[in-house]
């Protein structure tokens, strides 16, 4: 191919700003995805205040608090990792990303035990005990599993995203001068954290 002329504003150039803008737009869509669920939550809680309160006593506030601290810390480590790479310390950046993934795993393990306890008590939609609950409490548990489940899925995706970035830092395609992918994974991780910041009081701290 003998083409010599390239436009200065080519779509195939590396463009960190475009990549960042794209990521933010994607985050808007994520917010609106959860926004639909928050809307449903709001409507059903206002219709079933008493039932939501009663149902919320089944959750373990301490486990929820612990997980909140874990996620907040992981948001810090991912932010530090971006700064580390910007300063040229790829090794430290990777170490901090591994810490973030470790936090994600801790979060999921705690979540596993929380969900497991609900299964034991027959509180999962469709189980015998669940079917004897009043409608308001059933809605609460349905929303609980749906929203924390979807959030858990985002934790997994975020963890994989960070894992991919680690690999790219290792083979130097993400580096001091081209760190936008790392920053995007950080933005995504902050979103995962932020959504949990809302889920936690909505389900655990009702009073």
């Amino acid at each position: 191919m003998n083409h010599t002329f390239t436009l200065p504003n080519s779509g195939h150039n590396y463009d960190a700003k475009a990549s960042k803008l794209g990521m933010w737009l994607f985050l808007y869509t994520e917010l609106l995805l959860f926004g639909g669920l928050f809307l449903v939550y709001m409507v059903y809680r206002s219709l079933n205040e008493e039932a939501f309160l009663l149902a919320s006593f089944n959750l373990d506030v301490w486990m929820g608090t612990f997980n909140t601290v874990v996620l907040l810390t992981s948001s810090m480590t991912v932010a530090m990792s971006i700064t580390a790479l910007q300063l040229g310390d790829a090794k430290k950046s990777i170490m901090l990303l591994w810490l973030t993934i470790a936090a994600a795993l801790i979060f999921l393990v705690v979540k596993y035990f929380e969900w497991g306890a609900k299964f034991e008590h027959g509180l999962f939609p469709g189980m015998d005990h669940f079917n004897t609950l009043p409608p308001g409490e059933r809605l609460y548990f349905y929303l609980y599993f749906f929203m924390t489940g979807l959030h858990g899925l985002h934790v997994i995706v975020g963890g994989i995203f960070i894992g991919v970035v680690i690999k790219k830092i290792k083979n130097k395609s993400v580096n001091k001068n081209r760190y936008q992918l790392l920053e995007n994974s950080g933005l995504y991780w902050h979103l995962v954290d932020l959504i949990w910041i809302y889920l936690f009081p909505l389900f655990y701290l009702i009073h």
Binding site: L25, Y28, T29, E30, L32, L33, F34, G35, G36, L37, V40, P125, G126, P135, R138, L139, Y142, F146, L150
Partner: peptide
């Protein structure tokens, strides 16, 4: 970008409701 996610989550609720039979 701003409207489509809402139908996404709504349709997911329909699927979940068909699978688990909760009266959402």
């Amino acid at each position: 970008v701003l409207a489509t996610p809402v139908i996404g989550i709504t349709l997911m609720m329909i699927i979940a409701e068909r699978m688990f039979g909760v009266g959402l």
